[in-house]
Amino acid sequence: MTPPTGNAGRRGWDPLVRLTHWGIALAVLLNGLLLEEGKTFHVWVGYAAFGLLLLRLLWGLVGTGNARFSSFPPSLSAARAHLRDLLEWRHRDYPSHTPLGAWMAYTLWALLLVVALTGVAMENDPFPQNGGEEPAGWASYFSEHDEEEEDEHGEGRNGEHDDEEGLLGEVHETAANLILILAALHVAGVGVESRLSGVNLVRRMLPGTNRDA
């Protein structure tokens, strides 16, 4: 007889979690490694990722099952116990994120919010154009748009504006680099937990799979 599959963890993540996860992962890779900052596509991808992040956070409040924040509260003591388990190569089942995984999720979300908000502060136009002219084909979206256009509304405080942008840019970049490092650590963590539990945890995040094999 097969054991009852009542454990929420075995069912995998719900479609909204999967979609926002991969959408944001793609955006982080695109904007962090491929598309240079200041280019129109970078801005678009950033705004889209911001939307997905807001949706995931909303879902943490009103969602169901293991997607809710309440199913993986940040707990230092649980994280310590989990770390001890890891060091002794011991596995324990958790219905939602593991305690360390929960901290990873909250940290990543906080950093993503910082990156998104500083990004919006630097470029509050989701449709930046090249100096106000009509874009010359798709290629222009990959080129840097004219920052001077911004300044026609902010004349007289040009120097101050640049300083502000400098600090925002600094925060934006540092947080973004931290996200890339943590994302690598996150992938490593999933690998370790998969080895430990003998269950391919990536399957629970992939589209179309509803049960562990």
């Binding site: 909204l16 979609l19 939307g51 949706l55 989701p126 449709f127």
Partner: peptide
């Protein structure tokens, strides 16, 4: 399907409100 629609809605929301 609902997840896809929701994602589209929120992304559109962010673009629209920012604009």
């Amino acid at each position: 399907f609902l997840a896809l629609t929701l994602a589209l809605q929120t992304v559109a929301c962010v673009f629209f409100i920012a604009d």
